[in-house]
Design a binder for these strands. Structure first.
Lengths: 352, 352
DNA sequence: TTGAAAGCGCTAACAC
DNA sequence: GTGTTAGCGCTTTCAA
């Protein structure tokens, strides 16, 4: 059975010549055009011809060469998904939805993991222009190139998800982060909290900004004061949630609304380190409802976004764009919902 | 700025003819061969020629057509990574390492998310044979096709990571799951636990089997009895960890070793639901040290695998394979280590 | 319904 | 150091 670098077969990479469509044509006694047709659109050839071809294909274990097909058709059937961090469960769930729709349409989804590194962002943005991908799905709103709109991408079709830049013609699927944040703050206010802190995400990202705005307006609507000492800008990472606590607790909040679940977990760790319990001493509300939010101790009250659905919808939109169909709507805003669990409760002084 | 489906540019997809190498050649007053050389290997043309070409490329905003290049060179510079579940943080961390090495080598990594569905597994396995990928990285040991060795993949170079099937010539990067599991059990035994339960992963997967064997042998070496009532087969999901608890607790264990961290978290939820605390009533040890293990409450004692490193190493191996170099070693076994945190402690009766 | 033939845009001999 | 030329394997007119 030999060594894995040298195994050969009918289609072999081991050095011998691979089977081509011409070989099949010769074996079946037809032209390459007919083989091509039989493979792409079986209905268009006679049953007899089809049979001969099918047999030849099976005998030779033939597979079309996608490379040649791609060049001829000038398409790759590949979409490139640009994400800031694939190891973030938020993105990997969205990706599941993307990958599924892509696959259903005979497309392949490639991930470009930028780690928010401008150099890598640029490298990936170029991929589409070099015709390594037919279209782009952007989950990373920071790319400066996007800011100037579609033209900066050289006419490559793209859809943004979650993050966004302004522009009337930009295709976009997202949830209403502003509303959801307001809801989260309202929930805490209703429980009786008066001093509600906020751990924000990086403020150069649209979702962080929206959640922050929702926080401010939520406070205002509840008639609570808006103390700058109760705001901390994190980076969506666990550690930044923990790091926020010592500073934030100086302002004596009884509740904290964090811009994602990871920072909520980090914050809870930080509170624990100070000997404070959640929700007994401080309530915490997160955002995203990632896979582990409900299984955390305490289970996290958080905003559930339909991540899988966002991925599916954005990809369906891109498929429309690629097939040249007119889009019904360019912007879709999905509903998110507050999931109330044990990490939020009335403040201690309110008597539980 | 028009509509994102119709924007055109020099390389345009909007319908007008794209710039080709022939255009650049004409503008620069050289042959296409020279343009090709100047782009691929600048040192081989004179500075003067290079300059003319560079200017023409910049002016026309030219990008090589990878489709044509790929056909000509009969390569895709793409590797396909087959994973059972990308939303699992264990895999997404490995993928980070993969994606990085691929990128360093001018390759692109595509994820094939199988969801352990045989149909999708087969579809992805075919991709390489259709020349949509140059090589395969298998993180999913279940594909029946692999079982028969390299030949089943039609000579496509591949490397397995973590999961494996037997075969002397299979390229493989993994950690020693057997040893690590023994270590975990030894740790619990040393703390004074006598009845140690095990929540296994799906037993048709090599890693589950290895961890289970390590559990058995770990018990034996500690002189503990091996009670079938203390074993439960889960599916690596959170819920299966929770589901295991009612059954398992009938056997009165004081400690549980789970085959991954997700099931450990699930188990802790299940114990909580029964009013049992961790580690006061029952100690829990997980496996993998995923992103949230240390931030869990209680922080999880677990086996840390160098996931990122596994991804990097496996990809480096595949790059070797693809470049035709002889491999130093076909199998690499990396070290994992036990990370002791608060979820494991001496049993209550031991007075710890 | 089928065949002949013309490329898709690039790279790599081979000649100069 | 540069140009000429012959394809890579497929799809798709256009004719028959």
């Amino acid at each position: 059975m030999a060594d894995n670098t040298q195994v050969k077969n009918a289609n072999g990479r081991g050095g011998d010549k691979p089977t081509t469509m011409a070989d099949i044509a010769r074996i079946a006694g037809v032209s390459t055009a007919t083989v091509s047709r039989a493979l792409a659109n079986p209905a268009v050839v006679t049953a007899e011809t089809r049979e001969k071809i099918d047999r030849a294909v099976a005998d030779a274990d033939y597979r079309v060469n996608t490379l040649a097909r791609n060049l001829r058709k000038m398409e790759t059937r590949t979409i490139l998904v640009i994400v800031p961090d694939i190891a973030n469960p938020f993105f990997s769930d969205i990706f599941r939805g993307i990958e599924e729709v892509a696959h259903e349409n005979g497309f392949v989804a490639v991930i470009g993991n930028t780690e928010v590194d401008p150099e890598r962002e640029a490298a990936y943005a170029n991929m589409a222009r070099e015709r390594r991908a037919d279209g782009l799905l952007l989950l990373d709103g920071k790319l400066p190139a996007w800011a100037s709109g579609a033209s900066a991408l050289g006419g490559v079709p793209f859809v943004m998800a979650c993050e966004y830049v302004d522009g009337p013609d930009i295709c976009l699927v997202r949830t209403d982060n502003y509303d959801a944040a307001k809801l989260a703050v309202a929930h805490l206010a209703e429980l009786g909290h008066r001093r509600i802190a906020h751990i924000a995400g990086p403020l150069d990202r649209s979702i962080s900004q929206d959640r922050m705005r929702g926080y401010h307006d939520g406070l205002a609507e509840a008639g609570l004061d808006d103390d700058p000492a109760l705001i901390f800008e994190g980076d969506f990472g666990l550690d930044s949630g923990t790091a926020a606590i010592p500073t934030l607790m100086l302002g004596k909040p009884t509740a904290i609304f964090t811009s994602n679940d990871e920072m909520a977990m980090g914050a809870i760790q930080g509170l624990r380190a100070m000997g404070l319990g959640v929700p007994e001493d401080v309530s915490v509300v997160g955002f995203d409802d990632i896979r582990f939010a409900g299984a955390y101790n305490p289970p996290l009250t958080t905003v559930a976004q339909p991540r899988y659905e966002i991925g599916r919808l954005a990809t369906e939109m891109l498929m429309q764009l690629l097939s040249g169909h007119e889009l019904g709507q360019r912007q879709r805003v999905l509903n998110s919902s507050l999931v109330i669990r044990e990490s939020s409760a009335p403040p201690a002084k309110a008597g539980g």
